[in-house]
Amino acid sequence: MSWTARIGRGLAAALRAGVGEAHCDIPCGIYDPHAALLAAKTVHTMVTKLEALPTPGPKMAPEEEREARNSFARMVAVKEVHAQLCKQELLILWSDFFTEDDARRRPELHASVWKAVKLCSANKQQAHHATAQALLDACEAINRLFQEAQLIKSHADTGLRPTRRAAS
């Protein structure tokens, strides 16, 4: 350790300094399926709102038609962005959080993530309620796998074994 680092450490100890995390994304090991779930819920909400929009037609007033078209464009844009975000968050969990042990314990893991990211793409291509619901269900399934893996990892850290219920 250099002399500057030694002085810094001494000062920190004297001042009872806490730790401020200038967290980086990947190496810190902070993973949360919440962002993927939130994005999937946004996609679902946008599809629901799109379905409820009035259909422009000859009987519609020009102002009303303009409003409807504007709302349509905004909802599609939000759906597009959040479907992509959902895909990105799922891929981060898949590549960085889940381990080979998780995949061995839960053989459906890879297929579940693959299906979910495919559904992200499908939700960009389509605006169907069933497809949006399928994405939400797929993200909730991955959330359950995440929570289980997280629980097992925390038990491994403390040297305790998970209960049968937690591991089931």
């Binding site: 680092a5 001042l15 300094a17 401020g20 200038a22 980086c24």
Partner: peptide, 17 residues
């Protein structure tokens, strides 16, 4: 309150340590 920095996400203004 004194805080020691851990991580590099605020570089170059604030660095680890």
């Amino acid at each position: 309150r004194a805080l020691v920095v851990r991580g590099h996400s605020m570089a170059p203004t604030v660095r680890a340590g």
